[in-house]
């Protein structure tokens, strides 16, 4: 379980997150929704150790997660960054090897690679191509597969559906649900609020760095005030 307590992040003088608290229980799908600039990515990057925390704390099973980013990965908390961030000039296979950077057991790395290839055959077919030659949907698949290589228990997904064709979006959400069924805890940050809320056990609504609403995903999705004000959905 990840707990975020009274988290405040300032970039220079700008308040990016203002006193945010949230809980990500094991084996659940937790979603943060909200418009651009709401502080969703900042939250995910704070958990991953990529931004400096001004105030507050982040805890994994009661222990502080205030560590350098690579140590947080060691703890099984792995982020799939916004924009996928596939390394374009190295091959698909090398991207996956990097995903397992913390592992020293070559045999296990190969096993994990096999599993990933079984699940996403298109990656096996393209394993020797540079990552930059994949399509947007394939890159998102690779980004998730790369994260899975380290056998994480918490997966933090930052805007996985951004920039994908509508046809592919459902596929990505299906993939996320499947991973959760296998026991992974998911934090899903999305602008596509409707889709995210439909698979979230619990959701938080952010607006300009503050939390304005929270509740079970389906309830939030149905709340007319939230719909209108924060999700941009008119009835």
């Amino acid at each position: 379980m990840i707990e975020v307590n009274n988290l405040t992040v300032r970039y220079g003088g700008v308040m990016a997150l203002d006193d945010i608290s949230l809980i990500i229980p094991d084996r659940k799908v937790i979603s943060i929704v909200g418009a651009n600039g709401a502080g969703k990515s900042t939250t995910i990057n704070a958990i991953s150790g990529m931004v400096n925390i001004t105030r507050g704390g982040i805890f994994l099973d009661g222990k502080s997660l205030h560590l350098p980013p690579h140590k947080i990965v060691q703890k099984g908390v792995v982020q799939v960054p916004e924009g996928r961030k596939i390394f374009s000039s190295i091959t698909v296979k090398e991207n996956l090897i990097l995903g397992a950077y913390q592992m020293n057991d070559k045999h296990r790395i190969e096993e994990n690679m096999k599993k990933v290839f079984e699940q996403y055959p298109v990656l096996e077919a393209r394993q020797n191509q540079p990552g930059g030659t994949l399509s947007g949907g394939e890159q998102q698949m690779l980004a998730i597969a790369r994260a899975l290589m380290s056998e994480p228990n918490h997966l933090l997904l930052d805007e996985p559906s951004l920039g994908l064709a509508p046809m592919l979006v459902s596929g990505i959400f299906k993939m996320i649900q499947d991973l959760n069924k296998k026991g992974l805890t998911i934090l899903l940050v999305e602008q596509n609020a409707q889709k995210a809320l439909s698979i979230a056990d619990f959701a938080y609504v952010f607006e300009t760095g503050r939390m304005v609403s929270k509740g079970p995903g389906k309830e939030i999705a149905e709340d007319p005030i939230v719909k209108k004000a924060y999700l941009g959905i008119e009835e």
Binding site: F87, S89, E94
Partner: peptide, 17 residues
């Protein structure tokens, strides 16, 4: 491999551990 990856993007490899 990490070195070559960091040549395209020096921030993201941290997320891979």
């Amino acid at each position: 491999i990490a070195l070559r990856a960091a040549s395209t993007d020096i921030r993201t490899p941290s997320l891979m551990g």
